[in-house]
């Protein structure tokens, strides 16, 4: 990376190539920063109706990848996620999809075209929490480990956060 930046500074690359490489460098920096963010803990909140109290990580992944569409009581699974440009969103992408944000967007685009229910993306935690409280069967990923009233915290692999 340093040698690459050094090459940019010295102007050894062509201009069009420089632009491409500039973009790649920025992306690498972002990934680096996000990896730092991803380190933060995420927790799962769910509406009182629908989601079970405990889930395995694989079950959670299956649910958030749209593979599980109904709860055991037969109610519809409603996914709530922070947008991928937020820290929580990027952490979610990393932990539940093992994909970066763009790949998750593309993933949900293809899923939506197949007719699979897509998550509802939010800009803020408060909005997400409010949505989960108000929507039966809703399940969301948030930072921190506190569930608002009208919802409950779902344990993942027996832990409050993952």
């Amino acid at each position: 990376m340093l040698s690459y930046l050094l090459m940019l500074k010295t102007g050894n690359l062509k201009k069009s190539t420089q632009n491409q490489h500039m973009k790649l460098s920025l992306a690498a920096i972002l990934i680096f920063i996000s990896s730092l963010v991803n380190a933060q803990d995420l927790s799962v909140i769910a509406n009182d109706k629908g989601a079970p109290g405990q889930l395995k990580l694989t079950e959670l992944q299956s649910i958030f990848q749209g593979k599980t569409t109904k709860w055991t009581n037969g109610s519809k699974v409603v996914l709530a996620m922070m947008k991928t440009n937020t820290d929580a969103g990027q952490a979610t992408c990393q932990k539940l999809f093992q994909m970066n944000a763009d790949e998750v967007k593309k993933y949900w685009l293809t899923q939506s075209m197949k007719g699979i229910e897509t998550p509802v993306f939010f800009n803020g935690i408060a909005e997400l929490k409010e949505f989960v409280v108000k929507t039966p069967g809703a399940i969301g990923i948030v930072e921190g480990s506190e569930a608002p009233a009208g919802s409950r915290l779902v344990m993942v692999d027996g832990k409050k956060s993952f």
Binding site: W108, S112, F121
Partner: peptide, 8 residues
Amino acid sequence: IALNEQNF
């Protein structure tokens, strides 16, 4: 819109 806004 889906890709830019994450509104599907």
